[in-house]
């Protein structure tokens, strides 16, 4: 059963009762919350996601709760809670849904040490994966959102999950998080894409989430093989330009962006090495999204 098949009262009943058991790739989150915004945003952005009611196992038991005390009435806050633990300070209640999204990412980076977790976007053609590791501000999420609106499959816009045994990449297929100008850019680039309400004044500015394409969600259990590593860089008025990158440099781009590299030790080193061996690595400068898509489509055809 898909989340979108629940009526609004049914969804509310789950969120405030036995929990909403939601599957995102290999992970199942059991979510509790009384915030109307969370209910609304979930029904908007996760409509195609399967429920995991019968799974019996949730990787993460998450709840977004009210802040404590009188603040509930004066300046309401939202608090992320995982299985009774509160890893962060609460934030203003209008950020409840972004907090859920960040919290779900945090769960994977804090507890998911059975795999190598890269801070990188991952999209795929067939089962060939393009990894976009990049620091904030490089336009990685914008590029990811553009690609998945032009036929690439979304694996993840934030966290690339690499299996330590097989080297395969596990999809998460969660909404793409965009900020500030990127929101308008992607809305213009893909007028049919579905967005959450924009949340203003977060620590990252204005944030909005884009619904993942239905086909990507339907293929969330299909892993992909790493094929390309591309370090994107948005350079105003630059033509799209793809250059080769040496394997040493490529290794560093992976190690620098691996969130649990220090925890995995030798295993992490080996996984990063195998990843480099399987991929061709490139640097990419761009300013125009259509040119960028054309470049990647060309890359996919050549291989």
């Amino acid at each position: 059963m898909k989340l979108g098949e629940l009526t609004a009262p049914e969804l509310k009943q789950r969120l405030t009762g036995s929990g909403l058991w939601l599957r995102t790739g290999e992970f199942v989150a059991c979510i509790h919350s009384r915030f109307a915004d969370i209910q609304h945003s979930l029904s908007l952005l996760y409509a195609d996601h399967p429920l995991a009611d019968n799974a019996g196992f949730a990787d993460f038991h998450i709840s977004i709760e009210n802040g404590s005390g009188l603040r509930r009435y004066i300046r309401p806050q939202a608090q992320f809670v995982i299985d009774g633990v509160k890893p962060f300070q609460p934030l203003p209640a209008n950020q409840a849904f972004p907090i859920l999204e960040w919290g779900m990412n945090w769960c994977i980076t804090a507890y998911g040490h059975h795999q190598l977790v890269l801070h990188a976007a991952a999209v795929a053609r067939d089962d060939r994966c393009l990894i976009l590791p990049a620091p904030p501000g490089s336009g990685k999420s914008t590029l990811c959102a553009a690609l998945v609106n032009r036929g690439w499959r979304l694996l993840s816009d934030e966290l690339t999950l690499i299996d330590l045994r097989t080297g395969a990449i596990h999809p998460l297929s969660r909404p793409v998080s965009l900020k500030n100008n990127s929101i308008g850019v992607i809305k213009a680039f893909a007028p049919d894409a579905v967005f959450s309400r924009a949340t203003e004044d977060t620590s990252k500015g204005t944030v909005a989430l884009m619904k993942p394409p239905r086909t990507s969600v339907e293929q969330m259990m299909q892993t992909a093989r790493p094929r390309w590593i591309v370090m994107p860089k948005y350079v105003p008025s630059s033509p799209a330009r793809l250059d080769g990158m040496g394997s040493g440099e490529a290794f560093l781009s992976i190690a620098d962006n691996a969130m649990n590299y220090h925890i995995l030790g030798t295993q992490g080193f080996k996984a990063a090495g195998n990843l480099i061996d399987e991929c061709s690595a490139h640097r990419f400068e761009y300013s125009n999204l259509d040119e960028a898509i054309a470049t990647f489509d060309q890359l996919a055809r050549e291989a």
């Binding site: 990412n105 990685k140 998080s177 620590s203």
Partner: peptide
């Protein structure tokens, strides 16, 4: 103390 949220998931925030 619980990390202030901006310090917590900083790296995994949208960019």
């Amino acid at each position: 103390r619980a990390a202030a949220a901006p310090d917590g998931p900083e790296q995994i925030r949208p960019n």
